[in-house]
Design a protein around this nucleic acid. Structure first.
Lengths: 192, 192
DNA sequence: TGATACCTGAGACAAAAGTCACAAAATAAA
DNA sequence: TTTATTTTGTGACTTTTGTCTCAGGTATCA
């Protein structure tokens, strides 16, 4: 087994997704442990995404390069899943980059291997759908930030619902995620 | 049959989704035809969404009421599908409103009935996934408008990729969709 | 430890967008 | 057609946000 029972991954499978020990063993059996140093690239631009990533430690950052300007699209912290759904589905080259925001410990699942496991038990199928949903919900949350809120409201939303972002993500990176300049974010913070 | 073979729905099933006549008959068998006058509400705020909607004629508008200000989130034109995925999945009350933007002819599919058909043929299962994907891709496109583009760029993107929006959607409604004030949109248009 | 790169705060100014008020134009209703 | 209602265009002004610049702080690494 590539992943022992004192990991976050194991705990999530057991307690959050309520999967039986037999099925957990199958899932852990295809999980590949990877370590990335801060800043290391997990998915390159143009590369075809074949994996679903589970963050055991550290965090992952998804970003898009728009004419040389890096725009942060997503952060995935401990216990969350990350991937590029578009590239994963279409098997076309990725237009986004995924990299480690801190030194990170990642379990990666090969998409094909995971789908093969779906035949083994409906629990695993259900788990697969939950992973997909988690990723979609995170995307929708970020997208609503922009559609419904002003810059100041976006910051306060994050401060309230994701306080760990403020502690672990640098001001510059967070500004890019919130769609505003670093200076504007500084000003918003000062107004408290 | 509630839907004849000279409809857009029939043509889409046959030519776009490549479904066999037998399966098409099944799908059309559960399609309910509905007519809505311009402005009529298809899905109310708080109502649980049970249907997937196909636009045969006219268009549908999804909007969110933020403290009395209406924010347009989506438009679905002829040949496109619409629903509130969140409410459809969770069976919780909808936080968005769907209504007709013009006099509209809609075919609606009950989610449960459609899922029951999945057992009849894998073609229909595949069709169901394509519908889901179409809705998700439309959402992602709109969300990227905000994450990646400025107000002026958003307008030009729509002018290029969805010119019918400019012809059929009023300036006021389009401004709300693009996340800017009506006056700003007027000014952007003048600069051509 | 010192050198280097990166991150943050702050001020001055420019650009973009919002708000308000009112007139003109287009639609819908009588 | 005439009237009423809604939609759009425009200018003046305010607010918000971006850009540029520089200084100080912090982390990193050989």
């Amino acid at each position: 087994m590539t992943c022992s029972s004192d990991t976050l991954l194991y705990k999530q499978l057991k307690h959050h997704h309520n999967i039986s020990n037999k099925s957990i063993e199958k899932v852990l059996g295809i999980a590949q442990q990877k370590k990335y140093a801060k800043g290391a690239v997990v998915l390159k631009e143009g590369q075809i995404c074949k994996n679903i990533l589970f963050v055991e430690k550290g965090y992952l950052k998804s970003s898009y390069n728009k004419d040389g300007v890096i725009i942060n699209l997503n952060f995935s912290f401990e216990g969350e899943f990350a991937t590029n759904l578009k590239s994963l589905r279409s098997q076309l080259g990725s237009d986004i980059v995924i990299q480690a925001g801190e030194d990170a410990l990642i379990y990666q699942f090969d998409k094909t291997q995971l789908i093969d496991l779906y035949e083994y038990s409906p629990e695993i199928t259900f788990f697969g759908r939950e992973v997909l949903e988690q990723i979609l919900m995170a995307q929708e949350e970020h997208s609503n930030l922009f559609k419904l809120y002003s810059a100041t409201e976006r910051y306060h939303y994050i401060a309230k619902h994701h306080p760990q972002y403020l502690q672990r993500i640098s001001l510059t990176q967070l500004a890019s995620y919130l769609g505003l300049s670093r200076e504007t974010l500084t000003r918003i913070r000062k107004k408290n």
